[in-house]
Amino acid sequence: MTDFDHRVGVKEANLVIRNLRLTNVVDANRNALMEDIDHQFGIDEISYNSTDACLYLAYDATNINLEGIEDIIKKHGADIHNDWWTHTKEQYYKFVDQNVKDNAKHVPWSCHKPPSGAVKKHKE
């Protein structure tokens, strides 16, 4: 896949996929919740499985993070499921999101590069 296979604001290298169990999602707030998240810059895909009460997300971690998505979830009266496994995944997802964001800003260096202004000598 290339960057052209995704929505605007989503780069393949920064794409992360998340699935979270939610609570208090009913028919009345589900559509508004899904639309609100879907309109955020950096979201590639979103779906909700009512049987498992799971939210499936694919997004660019440099443009949006899980904390912003959680704020939208809470704004609509839903919440992240309160169990050990969901909280463990949530903390791991936040760590990886921050790592992706930091790595996207990182400028690689090399000790093999000549210093700026150095002139290469030619052998004759």
Rank of each mutant, 00 (worst) to 15 (best):
T23I: 14
V119Y: 06
E90P: 03
I37R: 02
N29P: 01
G68F: 06
D71W: 03
W109T: 13
K120A: 02
D36L: 03
F95G: 12
D79I: 02
N103Y: 09
F95T: 11
R18L: 07
P115M: 06
C111I: 08
N99L: 15
D83R: 07
I46C: 01
D97P: 02
K101F: 13
N29Q: 08
Y93F: 09
H112C: 08
L20I: 12
Y92T: 09
S50N: 11
N82W: 06
I17H: 13
I37D: 08
K120P: 07
R30T: 07
R7G: 05
Y48P: 00
E70D: 05
H106E: 01
E45P: 03
Q40S: 01
N31A: 09
V8K: 15
D38G: 05
V100R: 07
V119G: 02
D97T: 05
D102H: 00
V119W: 03
I17V: 06
I73T: 00
F41M: 04
D52S: 15
E45L: 01
D79A: 15
V26E: 00
L33W: 09
I43K: 11
D5A: 12
S50W: 10
L55M: 07
V119N: 06
T23Q: 13
G77E: 03
E67V: 07
V8M: 04
A53H: 11
H76E: 11
L57Y: 00
L66A: 10
I17T: 10
V16T: 11
V107A: 03
L22G: 02
V96D: 09
S110G: 07
N31D: 14
A118C: 11
T62I: 04
E35R: 14
S116A: 10
V26I: 12
N65G: 12
T88M: 13
I80E: 04
L33H: 11
L33T: 00
N31V: 05
L55G: 03
M1P: 02
N19E: 15
V96K: 04
I73M: 03
A32D: 13
D5K: 04
D71S: 06
A53I: 08
Y92S: 11
V16I: 14
I80H: 09
R30P: 08
W109Q: 15
E12I: 03
F4Q: 08
Y92W: 11
I17Y: 12
A61Q: 05
A58T: 06
L55P: 07
V10D: 00
E45W: 01
I80N: 03
A53K: 08
G9A: 06
L33V: 01
A53S: 15
I46Q: 05
E90H: 12
E35W: 00
S50I: 04
N19R: 14
I64N: 03
R7C: 02
N49T: 03
P115S: 03
V25G: 10
V107M: 07
I69C: 00
D38K: 13
P108W: 10
K120C: 12
T62L: 12
I64L: 14
S110N: 02
V26K: 12
V25H: 01
I43C: 06
H87G: 01
H81R: 11
K74A: 07
R18G: 02
V96R: 10
I73H: 07
E90A: 09
G77V: 10
K89N: 15
N29C: 06
A53F: 06
S110A: 04
A28T: 12
D36M: 00
